[in-house]
């Protein structure tokens, strides 16, 4: 079952002097439960593509259909709701709320969705235990290591059981041990909860773990490989 269907997607940035085509006619279908890495050199259009899938940026032409909803038909307010209810985001720099504890950071999205208090408490505990931070529920981000912070970010992205998770260079700021650990956790959650993951990455270790690798060059898909 496909979660995301992208057809002939184009994104052109009109600079003051030059026109840059960041994404140039991408056709792509992401299936439920896929663990996909989008790779390519800097400027190849990875982040632009993820931003458009995430509803943060709008395409110049082409369509993105998520679960039968064409994103181009949504207004700004609807796009905010779309992001809240369908996508989990993991950022390169963790981007946790510094004044909140790990537990509060994780429950934040569910709070915004208006979930019931008991359900939030239970899910928060469960997901933080899944990422190995069951004993750090009340720690603030500044009391956690980089790897631990990114695990909280993964827990936050997955807590509300989104249709898919977008992770933009999630391991770029981590050492190799933390990277391995984080990838194991994400892989396990992908299998356990059947969550769809889409990464943009330069990191070969992420590529090695991915079951589908899409290579972008100059805004075009030059390779789309499924493994195992």
């Amino acid at each position: 079952m496909s979660v995301i269907e992208i057809k002939n997607l184009v994104k052109i940035y009109n600079g003051s002097a030059v026109q840059v085509t960041a994404v140039n006619g991408v056709d792509l279908t992401i299936e439920k439960g896929e663990f996909t890495a989008i790779v390519g050199p800097s400027g190849s259009g990875k982040t632009t593509l993820l931003n458009m899938i995430g509803g943060l940026d709008s395409p110049t032409s082409g369509t993105i259909v998520v679960d039968k909803t064409d994103l181009s038909t949504l207004n700004k307010r609807q796009l905010v709701d779309y992001r809240l209810n369908n996508i989990g985001f993991v950022f390169q720099a963790y981007n946790l709320i510094p004044v909140l504890t790990a537990k509060e950071n994780v429950s934040f999205i569910m709070e915004m969705q208006g979930a019931k208090k008991d359900a939030i408490t239970q899910r928060t505990k469960e997901i933080l235990e899944s990422v190995g931070l069951g004993d750090r529920l009340n720690s603030r981000p500044n009391q956690l290591s980089g790897g631990q912070q990114q695990r909280v970010a993964v827990a936050r992205a997955l807590a509300s059981k989104p249709k898919f998770v977008i992770a933009d260079e999630p391991t770029a700021n981590l050492d190799s041990k933390s990277t391995e650990n984080l990838l194991d956790i994400m892989e396990e959650l992908n299998k356990k909860e059947n969550t769809t993951f889409i990464f943009s990455t330069h990191d070969q270790r992420v590529v090695n773990k991915a079951r589908r690798v899409i290579v972008l060059e100059d805004g075009k898909i030059v390779k789309d490989e499924r493994r195992g």
Binding site: R77, V80, L84, I87, F89, F91, N95, I97, M112
Partner: peptide, 11 residues
């Protein structure tokens, strides 16, 4: 941080 909040769905 505000960018992140808006990205993850804070209206």
């Amino acid at each position: 941080e505000l960018g992140m909040l808006m990205a993850i769905g804070m209206n």
